[in-house]
Simulated scan of single mutants.
Amino acid sequence: MPRRWFAFTGRRAAVPEEKASRAGPLIAWTGAGRPAWTPRDYGALAREGYQRNPFVHRAVRLVAEGVGQVPLVLTEGGRELDAHPALDLLARPNGRDTRTSLLEAIAAHLQIAGNAYVELVAVDGRPAELHVLRPDRVRVVPGADGWPEAYDYSVGGRTLRIPLAAERGPAPVLHLSAFNPLDDHYGLAPLEAAQVALDVHNTAAAWNKALLDNAARPSGALVYSGPQGLSDDQFERLRRELEEGFQGARNAGRPMLLEGGLDWKTLALTPREMDFVEARNMAAREIALAFGVPPMLLGIPGDATYANYQEANRALWRQTVLPLSARIAEALGGWLLPAFGDGLTLAPDLDQVSALHGEREALWRRIGAASFLTEDEKRAAVGYGPRAAAERGTRSWT
């Protein structure tokens, strides 16, 4: 996959060698080979889940696009900042991505792989560009104490080691991982937890497709009505032909040519008894459960957990999107902001989330009617700093 490195205006001529990514020279190479970085293969999960299963695809997109839509607010000493180099970096992390696409990629990798890696390109110790790395190309290198001391980035049969220790500024790589009770370095993705349901759903779909391709005929039994039993050679030949030509989803429903003395007796369950549709819906609900997405939002029929789509959408944002957004913002802020100064924090701006406008409006009314609270206490209750700090900032608050 080709990579892109765009220098900021006026800087490329001065320090071209300091602007290049350590992993950049490797990314132009393509070829076979994929490092195994978790017990389950990332490529297989991405193909079977995100690329082939519509419910996984939609669940990942709902969560990732929601995280990308959440505005981030930068505060310093209780006051919000409208203009700051850190905000400029997040708004345009590199020559290709925007803040939205950067956050979407991080959230999507966490959903599919359980891990997300962000590479920092620095100029004179100051953060200049951010790039999201594919999780299957990154491997943690533990040190003597067991904690990570470097990351190996592999592509096209070549490997580059990126030490975590930086001479100045933040570490060159930020690693975000979902909680994994059985691994010290790699996270557990929701897609891994949903793998059984994913296999059931995909297999049921493949079986149904095979039946449709072969006239939807069920299986049965061969009954021999000849004067004497089959010889060993005849029995083995018949068994081999059945296994090779009529067994498995690929051969489901294929017509069979019977020899003398053989009779076909249908034994398979009817489609109603097998009830593939309900089995697929149950597997789809389990997939939605693993990703924290209300089944109603994925179009799964027969689920009446939520009264309406508005409640389901609010549950998605409150229980899944906002916690993930807050975690990503906290990780990015703790990693990058110390390079820009002390006292800076990065967090989601809940007042700008359209899905929460009803809740925020109700909160503002309740807090505004609380006469026993001071003005600064009311501001703190809705997530703002003291008025004196806000008046020193560049953003007004009314």
Score class of each variant (00 low, 15 high):
86 A>G: 02
260 G>D: 14
164 L>P: 05
78 G>A: 05
382 V>C: 02
144 A>F: 04
89 L>P: 04
50 Y>W: 06
54 P>V: 09
226 G>V: 05
252 A>Q: 03
56 V>Y: 03
229 G>V: 02
156 G>D: 01
139 R>V: 00
127 P>M: 04
391 E>P: 09
261 G>P: 04
35 P>D: 14
39 P>R: 11
233 D>N: 08
8 F>A: 12
163 P>W: 04
266 T>D: 03
150 A>Q: 02
201 H>W: 11
185 H>I: 07
58 R>Y: 00
174 L>D: 00
325 S>M: 06
82 D>S: 13
323 P>Y: 07
14 A>N: 08
318 R>C: 07
298 L>T: 07
113 A>Y: 01
90 L>M: 02
248 G>F: 01
39 P>I: 09
381 A>G: 01
299 G>W: 06
42 Y>A: 13
228 Q>H: 15
115 N>M: 09
142 P>V: 08
377 E>F: 00
141 V>D: 14
107 A>W: 02
291 F>C: 01
327 R>Y: 06
56 V>D: 05
397 W>E: 13
350 L>W: 04
348 P>G: 03
201 H>M: 15
252 A>K: 01
78 G>D: 04
205 A>N: 06
233 D>F: 02
261 G>T: 07
390 A>C: 14
303 D>V: 14
274 M>K: 09
395 R>N: 15
295 P>N: 11
92 R>N: 12
262 L>Q: 06
264 W>E: 10
125 G>Q: 10
44 A>I: 10
208 N>V: 15
356 L>G: 02
392 R>Q: 00
233 D>G: 12
31 G>W: 00
56 V>K: 06
398 T>E: 08
7 A>I: 01
306 Y>W: 05
137 R>C: 14
124 D>M: 03
375 E>V: 15
311 E>K: 15
295 P>A: 10
123 V>L: 14
62 L>P: 07
124 D>C: 02
82 D>H: 11
397 W>G: 13
138 V>I: 09
299 G>E: 14
118 V>E: 10
53 N>M: 04
275 D>S: 12
190 P>N: 10
114 G>F: 13
118 V>D: 08
295 P>V: 03
95 G>K: 01
88 D>C: 05
147 W>G: 15
268 A>Y: 07
110 L>E: 06
359 E>Q: 15
96 R>L: 03
297 L>Q: 05
364 W>N: 15
262 L>K: 12
336 L>Q: 08
157 G>Q: 04
93 P>W: 00
87 L>W: 02
14 A>W: 07
325 S>R: 11
5 W>L: 11
64 A>I: 03
292 G>V: 15
375 E>D: 12
190 P>S: 07
97 D>V: 02
121 V>C: 09
